[in-house]
Amino acid sequence: MTRDYPEKPKQVYFFGTCLIDLFYPEAGLHGIQLIEREGIAVFFPPEQSCCGQPAYNSGYDDEARSVAAAQIACFPKDIPVVVPSASCASMIREQYPSLFEGSSLEQAARSLAERTYELTEFLVEVCHIQLKDQGEPVKIVVHHSCSAQRHMRTSHQTQKLLNQLGNVAVVQQERANECCGFGGTFSVKAPEISNAMVQDKCDSLMATGAQQLVTGDCGCMMNITGAIEKRGDQLNGKHVASFIWERTQ
């Protein structure tokens, strides 16, 4: 499961992801700022949109492929592509090669997959980032997406990053490894099952008494904080990029 990481580059692309674009843009901005602070120039191609995963997971491969092809065209230069979501990063890294197998875009898809990194993975393994915590003491609970745990396998890097913050205490929730029930279109196609899962996840998160929920994936965040709000509980959610940026200013 290990991956070879390159030397710190001078330039990278940033793929914002459609969820962050529309719902959590500050997470994208903070991710970019974290990278720029490490002395790397960040390029945000404006033609980018969505990685194609929603259609792909629903079994609509042609539609997914047409959108994925448009994304491949956004990142032509052979420099790293950093993605503030393990879910979208894994779509590119794990699925793009097979999605374009046998097509004229196969090479381009492979090349893109090779140089795609999840944000915390990139900060830890490529930038060797050093963080200095300027924030107030706080108790947080961290939710690692299934993509981070079992596809990109970057959850330990997210953890490493957070562990550098001296005033942050991380509490572990029960059944931390279990899916929160988002699963993209799963949450609307199998809503009752998804709800059963997110309710259990909310229970375990609330039981920690944490003041703040931090996660690397906005899909999970939208799912969890949406459920927390609907049931009248209180737990603020933040993307790991925003959480770190705000505390290390």
């Binding site: 299934c146 745990q149 596809h151 899916c179 699963g183 799963f186 099952i193």
Partner: peptide, 9 residues
């Protein structure tokens, strides 16, 4: 096949 969040466990 719809009853799956593709979580990979």
């Amino acid at each position: 096949t719809q009853a799956c969040s593709l979580n990979g466990a």
